[in-house]
Amino acid sequence: MTYKRILIATDGSALSKKAVASGIELAALSGASIVALKVVPRYPQAYFEGAVMVGPQEIKRVEKQWTDAAQTVLDEVEEAAAAAGVKAKTVTTKSDFIAEAIIAAAKKSKCDLIVMASHGRKGIKRLLLGSETQHVLTHSHVPVLVLR
């Protein structure tokens, strides 16, 4: 099968970087472009009794720090894609629902394949597949290539 646009989801972890490399290689072999996606969580705002209240400026500062770190990860993907002769677009999405954000980005960008690692930083939660990966596999209408 030949792919035209491949979404590569990354969290910047070592395992995710291997999936990025494989996704770029697949794109190069099939003449596809890639959409590199990093989902950034929103700052948790819990209001429990006795919890320390964090001001809006601090929340904005932390979220900006996370977004800047995401852009650094995506810049690395873009550089690797350019070195392989693959056209790349990068996308940062803010969401607490990572799997849903991946699926929505693939649909919005009209991707015909999603490439992602079997687990990221939350991999301890699942023995075989990360919870986000499992969710993407079971809910995506776009084919998913999972790499370990």
Rank of each mutant, 00 (worst) to 15 (best):
E49V: 13
K64H: 12
S131C: 05
M116D: 08
G55Q: 10
A101D: 05
Q134G: 14
R5I: 00
G31V: 09
D75K: 14
A106S: 14
E100G: 15
A36T: 05
G23A: 05
G23K: 04
V39N: 01
V40S: 04
A105R: 05
T138S: 15
K108P: 03
L7W: 07
D112I: 12
K18H: 14
Q65Y: 01
K107W: 00
T90M: 08
H135I: 07
E76W: 00
A28D: 06
V62Y: 11
I34F: 03
T90C: 04
S131I: 09
A46D: 07
V62D: 06
G50C: 10
T67A: 06
V52E: 14
D112Y: 13
L145G: 05
A51I: 11
A104M: 07
D75M: 09
V91C: 04
G120F: 07
A21P: 03
T93L: 12
I24R: 00
G120S: 05
K87C: 05
L29T: 10
G31Q: 08
L128H: 02
S95P: 13
D75P: 08
R126T: 10
W66R: 01
G85D: 09
V73Q: 07
V35T: 13
R126Q: 12
L137N: 11
S22M: 10
K4D: 15
S131N: 12
Y3P: 02
I8P: 11
Q65W: 01
F48Y: 14
L137R: 09
R5M: 04
V20Y: 10
S16E: 02
Y3C: 10
G23W: 02
P44N: 07
P143K: 08
S16P: 10
V91K: 15
A27I: 10
G85E: 10
E79W: 01
K89M: 09
D75T: 11
Q71N: 15
G130S: 05
